[in-house]
Structures are given as C-alpha cells and as structure tokens.
Nucleic acid binder design. Structure first.
Lengths: 330, 330
DNA sequence: TTGTAAGCGTTATCAT
DNA sequence: ATGATAACGCTTACAA
C-alpha cells in the first residue's frame, strides 16, 4: 500500500483538498505548501488509487477482452491490435483467458463487469438465448468478434458463408473432382458457439451444388486423419482436395501427409481458413482464406469505443471483406 | 450501471445493512423482506461493484501479468498456465500487453499497481537500476519470469548459461568444427533487458573454449541470414552448426535454407532455444533447448501467491532445470 | 490560498 | 430482525 492523500495531508498539516490541488496542478496552492506536499508525495511514493477515483466519477477507462486460449492462435493475433487501438484512445486493456470453458467464459465476463470495465470484447464460445440475455443484462457495451451470438449483440465478422463459397470455387477452378470439408465435431454445436464454422459449412454445401461433376463429403470429427487416409486409398484416381474450416486442421494434415510420404498438391489438394500467422513459417505455403483479423479487430475496438462515447448501444452487424489467398497447396 | 445496494434498500424500504444480509445470506433477515430484496435484486440485475468492495477491505483478488507482445510466442505459452494456477486460488488474472515498448511496460506496471493488483508477473524488457528502484517503490509483490532485473527482485528462470554450455556440448559431440552463435543485436543491451540472451552468450563463450579444434563466431545483428550465407560459402568443407538464442531465429534460417535448396542437417547444423510450441508444426524437427516455460510459469505464480499470502516479499532467485532436446537438425 | 462537507458503493461495528 | 454510522481513498462543489 502506498501513501494516501489523507496521510500526505496529515503529514503536511494541510487539508486533503490542498494536497489534491498540489498533486493535480490545478487551483492555486502556496509555493511552500506545494513544495512540501510534492516532496512528501515523492518520498512516500504516492500513487493514486484508481479504484477510489473510478468509484466516484464512474469511469474506469478500461476495456475487457475475453480470449479463449492463447495457444489457440486464432484470436491471439487480434490482441495486439486491440491493445494498440485502445491505448491510442486512452483506455487500459485487460485481457482475460477463459481456457475453453463455457462456464469460465461467463464467470470472466461477469468478473469484468463487476470490475466496472466500460466495454467488453469477446469471441464467444457460449451461445444461445440464455447467454444472449446474460450479455444484455449487463448493460455494458459488448462487441463480439467473429462468432455471432444474436442480432441483439453487436458483431464484427466476415461473411464466412461467402468465403467458403469462394474457397470452393477456387478449388473447383483447379480441376478437383472431389472436395472434402473438414470441420469441428458437429456434436458440440449444441453447447458451443462455432458459428463461423457453421457458416462455412453452409457455404460449402451451397457451393458444391453448383458443380455437378464434383462429389463432396463432410468430415466433422476428430478422426479426420484416418478418414482422409481411407478416402485417398479408395479413390486414388480422383483428384481430391481437402478444405479445412481452420488452418490448424490443414497443418495437421500437412504433417500427416509428410509422414506418409505424400506430396501436396501432388497427391491431394489442401486449403485452410483464417490465415493464422504461423503459416509464415510453414512450407509449402498453405492456400487459405484470410478472415481479415486485423481489420475485424480494429473495427471491433473502434465500434466498442464509439458505443462507450455515444452511450448508444444499439446492436449492429458489421461485415468486413475476406480474401482468398491462392498459394501453393492446390 | 446496474442497481446498487442503496437503491435496493430504498425500493424495499429497508436499510442497506439488511439488503446486504439478504444478498450475502448472513445474519438473519425476515422471510418477507428477504424475498422482496432478492426479487428486486434479480429484477434489476444487481451486480456488486468490486471497485467499492475492494476499496473497502483492501483486497482486489487480482493479479497483473505484463506480456511483451502476443505474437512473440515465447511468453504467451505461460499465460494459460498462470491463469489456471491463479484461478485455482481464487484470483482473477489481468493480462496487459506492452507491445515491445520500454516506456509502455513501465506505464502498464504503474497502471496495474494503481488498479491495486495484489501482485505482478513480468518478463521484463526494461532493465537497470532505475527500473529496479521503480519496481521496488511499488511495494507490491513482483515476480520476474525469465529475465533478471536485479537480485532484489524475485526471479524464476532456468540457468541459461548452463543451458548454452549443454547446447554447445551436444553440437560438439556431433562432430561439428565450427559453431556460430546467433543472437539479438548486442547494441540494444544498453537499454533493453535481454538477460537470458546475454547469459546464453556467456555460456556459449565458455563452452567453445573447451574445444580447441572448434572455431566459433558470434552474429549479433539483423543481417544474420546474409552472414550465414557468406560463412557457408567460405568454409564449404567445414562442418558448421548455427546455435540460435531463440527458436525464431532458427525458424527463419530454416525457411531461408529451404529457399536456397540447402538441407538440414546435411548442409549445416541448426539448433534453437526455448522450444516454442509452433515447432510442433515444423519439419525437420528442430533440435533445441527447452527452457521449461510451464515449470517456470507455475513456479512464478505459486511464488507470487505465496508472497501475497505471507506478506513476505523478500527476494529469491529460483532456478528450474532445462532440457536439451536432441531432435533432427544436428 | 485554503478548508469543509458530501458522495461514489461496499462493508464492518456497534447499537436497537 | 433491523438500522445507524463510520470507514476505504478520491473528487467536487461550495465556502471562508
């Protein structure tokens, strides 16, 4: 605990108002008193208690950011951007990690609200009516990044469905005759928010219909490597590509392919989603879709700060553009 | 803003003391009053203001963690661990990002202290007497992870010097005749805390002396790729290995080698430091040194929490064991 | 130039 | 079973 204004006042034999005036350089203070106050403050390392300050003027100048899991890589890239943007505007950014727990995410959001964060950014793993109501009940500006909870909550995202359609079009244009979509287990949909993946899946379904000569398949479970193996064995002649709803699936497939002595795109085509930053280190260069995380993050903070400023929390849906990155695995 | 205890009291026509008793389920409250209070609280989404609560009993149950840059990968791996460990003990973890700015780091630490964090974890990029005094002046438990500031500040780390010696020994045992150490620009040492790298460099120097048949060289600037090229051209017959003080240098060298059509370890040996988690996705498997981040992080939180509990902030230096990971690039 | 008093929302102590 | 009061550290009128 550092010294308080009251203690300084006592030590200097003046009132705390005077101390405040000296410390904050406002109002007028006698030269001697000012000097004495400042010297005592320095000597005892006076440091304002921001809890007290915030408590009385009702502002903390702090934002909360809930992140799933820092090893996840996806959302992590946004954190620097969010932080930089918030700092420019004088806000302090508090990041908390929910470690993939649905319950944990709720508790953290609650905790941030109780700590009087002025706004919260999330890429939520919770979903559903109850969660929506929970968020709304906080009466704090909240912006969702990537994952959509409800139209009553502001969301910044890319059009994932359209992105998936573009991805399929690219694959089709390269002459593939079979496209397999790899995504998270569909069973978790009931509890967990995988909106982005769902949208991509929808896009995939819509897109493959356009190509009557292309067969399609969906793999939605953890055993995808084994299934891929089967597929490649059963249709050795058919030019097959795997479209992954997430680069990390693609990376695992690359690693597996390497072990099996398969070449990409020689033996099969591969495409990811998200353009996570570790792709820079990986070869061959993965063909993927950039979901414009930088743009999404920047827009999300800007929107959040604007809601705080204007006190207008009316929900918006903001869509940014994605980009198909045609690299070396198709 | 949610409803406050006072407002509930007013609405229910009772005193705030009674409201508190009802909300916290302690003391005795009449059945009717209790029900009324609880229903009003629920209706208006009562949420305790933790700023006020903390102000009152002087505890925030929050820890601050300062991270350099989430793209950096090195420290990021610890964040989940820190968070998990702190949560077990009932603490809330606030992560802030300093974005590689020396000034930023100081400001953030200050900000965390002003927000009454009960303890702070840092892998500091600042160094020197002044910074040390700054940290000490906060009178808050602080634990440094990896980078050392001064013996007056508790630090949890591995013996980097010994680790570097072990690395050199491994390289020597594989028959290399020239070892080149790649590290950050030495010019930044004056301002920036690169203690771990300095220690590794010292270890490197000490180790190569033991081998009279091995020549050594140190590259401490950004142009290392060009210099490596020159070295390989000039001594084509000499078996050369590059020991990098950080896996990301090694990854860049791998990428470059690939572009140049060089094979590892065929054309040169390569070894990194830290065992960052993206190595899992990279092939060939990089030979490196694990600096036991998990252990360091766990120990750091535990130590921090202990200091908070016991109110004994006396500085310690805690060393954990490293492990040389002999994989496929030597 | 300096001080007094009330208030932010919560809690703890001591009454009734 | 309920309430009054002071306190945490800071801010902001409003005096003097």
């Amino acid at each position: 605990m550092s010294i308080t204004v009251n203690q300084i006042a006592e030590k200097c034999g003046v009132s705390r108002t005077t101390v405040l005036r000296a410390l904050n350089n406002q109002g007028s203070v006698g030269k001697n008193t000012r000097e004495k106050i400042l010297s005592v403050a320095k000597e005892f390392n006076y440091r304002p208690n921001l809890l007290a300050r915030s408590l009385n003027h009702g502002r903390t100048m702090s934002l909360g950011v809930v992140t799933i899991n820092v090893e996840n890589m996806y959302f992590v890239q946004s954190l620097n951007i969010i932080n930089r943007e918030a700092e420019k505007r004088g806000y302090f950014t508090n990041i908390v990690v929910c470690d993939e727990s649905l319950e944990g995410e709720r508790k953290l959001i609650q905790g941030l609200a109780e700590r009087q964060m002025e706004g919260i950014l999330i890429s939520p793993i919770n979903k559903g009516k109850e969660f929506e109501e929970f968020l709304l009940s906080l009466h704090i500006p909240i912006v969702c990044i990537g994952n959509h909870v409800s139209d009553s909550i502001t969301t910044v995202q890319v059009n994932e469905m359209k992105a998936a359609i573009d991805a399929v079009d690219l694959i089709a244009s390269k002459g593939y005759r079979k496209i397999v979509f790899i995504c998270p287990p569909l069973a978790v949909q009931k509890q967990q928010n995988i909106y982005a993946h769902e949208q991509r899946l929808l896009g995939f379904g819509a897109a493959v219909q356009k190509y009557s000569h292309i067969t399609s398949q969906i793999i939605g479970d953890q055993e995808y490597l084994r299934k891929i193996e089967t597929i490649l064995h059963e249709n050795p002649e058919k030019k097959t590509a795997f479209l992954c709803s997430g680069d990390s699936y693609a990376l695992n497939i690359m690693r597996w392919g390497e072990q099996e002595g398969l070449s990409i795109p020689g033996d099969f085509g591969l495409m990811g989603f998200d353009n996570i930053n570790i792709l820079d280190y990986i070869s061959p260069k993965l063909t993927t879709v950039s979901t414009n995380l930088e743009g999404v993050a920047t827009t999300a903070v800007t929107e959040l700060l604007q809601q705080i400023d204007t006190k207008d929390y009316s929900p918006k849906s903001i869509y940014l553009n994605h980009a198909v990155l045609d690299r070396n695995t198709l």
